[in-house]
Design a protein around this nucleic acid. Structure first.
Lengths: 225, 225
DNA sequence: TGTACATCAGTGAACGCGCGTTCACTGATGTAC
DNA sequence: TGTACATCAGTGAACGCGCGTTCACTGATGTAC
């Protein structure tokens, strides 16, 4: 962390004992290190000893801040999910057009999906981690601060589409799950799944097919089956 | 494997050395044990030593049949994918109605999706394993024997829908990826993902919403975006 | 403002575990003559 | 049909590794009087 000269080793060893960092720095450091590990290798790569190493702290020091490895992992996963939410919020925030404008609403939905896919592609480790949280899942549990969780962002855009008349009221209920499933499935299949080795050309065609699929599903009334 | 009496231990120990099993039995046993491990705990649970233990063989004996743990895992994953394909083929085979009948074609598509979801729900470990194959993926590589791979089964039903006039020709290209993404995403989200703790009622509503979403996307022409 | 003391947050050493993998071996199997 | 021998498929022992986690400790921090 600090630059050590040839004589610095002893200084570090001397100063190393006891508490030297400001309050909360070690906990934050462990969480940040865990996030870096997840970024590089997914949730399985979040190794407590390695996070402690990166923080410059002895492994068992982590137990002052987390009950066990699972608790650290949960914090990392939540951070990964927040990063996804931030990417989506940023993308949708860049779309021009007043609220209620049908064309703008469509663009916002598209931006949301695009951001989701881009995150999965750019950060496969974080994407996997975001959905790999151990035991109970706090996916919707936005604590007020920060961006709303992905599902809420999607709901907001769909509500706007319904108000704008692009999406018929009758079809609105449950639509967020259908679209979420579609985009999430595409992300999983093309990033970690069987379609991960698709060349760029076919990959783009697949993505276009999925976009058309979603677009064409917005306006029409449901048909009897 | 064989029932050992109190005096059987020595017999087993005596007979244990050297090769006793019929040709290929150990390899098959390891693969079957690996599949059982994947069934119970997903791809990460496919542990070479444990598979050897279950087969009644010393751990390093596995290296006579597989180059390393990854090769065993690949075999297990392929078997898991074959089980998914078999479930889908069985489900679609039970649908009555001659080829080309529009209503029957729709039922076949629905049966396909239903089987996919049911497999993910009944066998979460195998489902995860099927999509966790290390390095290059042989998803489409049907070797002639057995059922066609899932994607081909889906293509066949969509072709039938197109011929029956249910799915307009213009929308047919790429549709298999859109539907696959949707169903796969739903499976992942509700089985391992953030929706895994949904009570039965809401879960059924979500599934119904996704079904409606797919149904309503078959017939309509694409709209300009 | 100064001192006594509880608490907090780190260190150092060690534990047991189970894993994948390698080595030298040996006995049964199956083939060539 | 019988024998010599190469190959195959197992055994037994061991390796090094890195992990999560526990223990007893110690020194700095911050609080009560």
């Amino acid at each position: 962390v600090t630059a050590d000269g040839p004589a610095g080793a002893q200084a570090a060893a001397t100063a190393g004992a006891g508490r030297r960092r400001p309050r909360g720095a070690v906990r934050d450091g462990l969480a940040a290190a865990g996030l870096a590990l997840a970024r590089a290798g997914g949730p399985d790569a979040v190794v407590l000893r390695e996070a402690a190493r990166m923080t410059g702290v002895v492994p068992n020091a982590a137990y002052r801040h987390f009950a066990d490895r699972d608790e650290l992992l949960a914090v990392v996963c939540a951070a990964a999910m927040r990063e996804l939410a931030a990417r989506m919020a940023a993308a949708v925030g860049q779309v021009r057009g007043r609220p209620g404008d049908p064309a703008a609403a469509r663009r916002r939905l598209r931006a949301l999906g695009q951001a989701y896919l881009a995150f999965a592609g750019d950060e496969p480790g974080l994407f996997a981690a975001a959905f790999a949280v151990p035991r109970p899942h706090a996916y919707d549990a936005g604590d007020g601060a920060g961006d709303p969780p992905p599902l809420d962002q999607l709901r907001a855009v769909l509500d706007e589409l319904a108000e704008a008349g692009v999406l018929s009221r009758a079809r609105r209920p449950g639509m967020e799950y259908a679209i979420w499933s579609t985009v999430h499935g595409l992300a999983v299949l093309t990033v970690q799944g069987p379609l991960r080795n698709l060349p760029d050309g076919p990959r783009r065609e697949v993505e276009q097919a999925v976009r058309d699929f979603i677009d064409s599903s917005l306006a029409e009334p449901p048909r009897a089956s």
